[in-house]
Design a protein around this nucleic acid. Structure first.
Lengths: 236, 236
DNA sequence: CGATTGGTTGACCGAGATCAATGGACGTGG
DNA sequence: CCACGTCCATTGATCTCGGTCAACCAATCG
């Protein structure tokens, strides 16, 4: 029995297998999608554009149509943390606080679908399935956040990188065996609580050990077993 | 303008001031409480008792009536992380996954009120105010989790300890100026991604600097300013 | 009163941070 | 097309914060 969709993600033995539980944060399925589609407008944004700033009032919620978005928190001394990367079909900005406590930025050129929060709330009021989906989506993000706390608090740099690569592989289409990495090394570091040099060293070590092959903007997994054992994940 | 209730907590200049935004995770106010009260049964548990185990099926949700509860994740090699401490009036086990991905344990002798999940769902279906409260509670926990990721990924041991003490002070009644610390040093370490020795050293350093005074099972804040500047929090 | 549990402190070590140099990919303008 | 500048990845050398191992003490509880 899988413990949660997080665990499930990392347990997947090979590229191509469909996850038993859909990844949390993905957009709603079936009829709910249609109702939502009509409410949103698609916007294109350039690489590194700020979708909203930390401290902005929260008016809108979003779904990623294409590309990769990052959620960023910064301290005034410049220390930065990326709480989440979001890919096609995943949503962000559904938290209820009136003011954003993270910035949202485009990692690469992206298209996002924007929704007015009032429209989202109205839809939740009129459609119990959508309300249920929203609650489960938030709940899933909370579980993922708890898993990430464990990673940030207790895992080594090498474990973090291996876990990250497996997560990226799990979320990507991966038609040709090359898993894309849209974000620069610095972003990977800020996501994992590491410096970019450390992220870099861990990646090249994995390559030297023939577990992965680094490509232009991505990587290929050569030895899935080596990677999973490196990640040291709990598989209940 | 405060950015979130998390930020608000740490910005509070002295013990006794009422927060502008109620702490997230607290039990619902007013009429909603009454409806919920009837559904729950109060249970007493001994110190270190397991309320539920990691991997158990999730049947119940809880509110803390008295004492302190911890949410614990463990790796099979023994590394442990505490995702959350919960105090009187705060709730846990409202996440939707069918299987718990954290254990819940009593830090000290506690009383908790248990609710059947089906009852919680029924109440949410029949009372929109309760449904709204539940969504905001989950959302608040998600924001706190994001703040904690920043702490675990980017703050120093000394910053983490100062932040932790301010959080504890903010959440406690603190009638007599002594902030209780129900949990042992090891738990503080596991909450902050530190070893217990490191937590201990950071605490005694703060005491030597006359910022706090350590007591039997708690501490007194002697120099609030020293503590907040040590915590290095963002105050928007 | 000994046994157990939790807190404190010291000595030393190592994973990851920091500082620095190099090189490749890419874009732009002449 | 080439020269130059910018951004990013990589690698090396060194340093440091926090981890590790260990001793000791105080409080609590049979």
């Amino acid at each position: 029995m899988m413990q949660s969709s997080t665990q499930e993600s990392f347990a997947r033995p090979q590229i191509g297998g469909a996850p038993a539980i859909p990844r949390t944060g993905s957009s709603p399925a079936g009829g709910v999608t249609l109702a939502l589609q009509r409410l949103g407008t698609v916007i294109s944004m350039d690489r590194n554009a700020e979708i909203w700033a930390q401290g902005n009032r929260a008016h809108s919620s979003y779904i990623v149509v294409a590309g990769c978005v990052r959620m960023v928190k910064v301290l005034e001394d410049g220390r930065r943390h990326i709480t989440e990367f979001l890919f096609e079909g995943e949503c962000f900005g559904f938290e209820t606080p009136a003011v954003h406590d993270c910035a949202a930025e485009a990692v690469e050129d992206v298209r996002v679908q924007r929704f007015r929060r009032s429209d989202i709330d109205d839809l939740a009021d009129s459609d119990p399935r959508f309300a249920r989906w929203r609650l489960e989506m938030m709940s899933g993000k909370l579980c993922l956040a708890q898993e990430r706390m464990l990673t940030l608090g207790r895992r080594t740099a090498h474990e973090r990188i291996a876990e990250f690569l497996l997560d990226m592989a799990d979320r990507a289409d991966c038609t040709n065996g090359i898993v894309p990495l849209a974000m620069p090394r610095g972003d990977i570091g800020d996501y994992l609580g590491l410096r970019l040099e450390t992220a870099c060293r861990a990646l090249t070590l994995l390559e030297r050990q023939r577990a992965i092959r680094l490509e232009r903007n991505g990587f290929a997994i050569l030895d899935w077993h080596a990677l999973t054992s490196r990640a040291n994940m709990v598989m209940h």
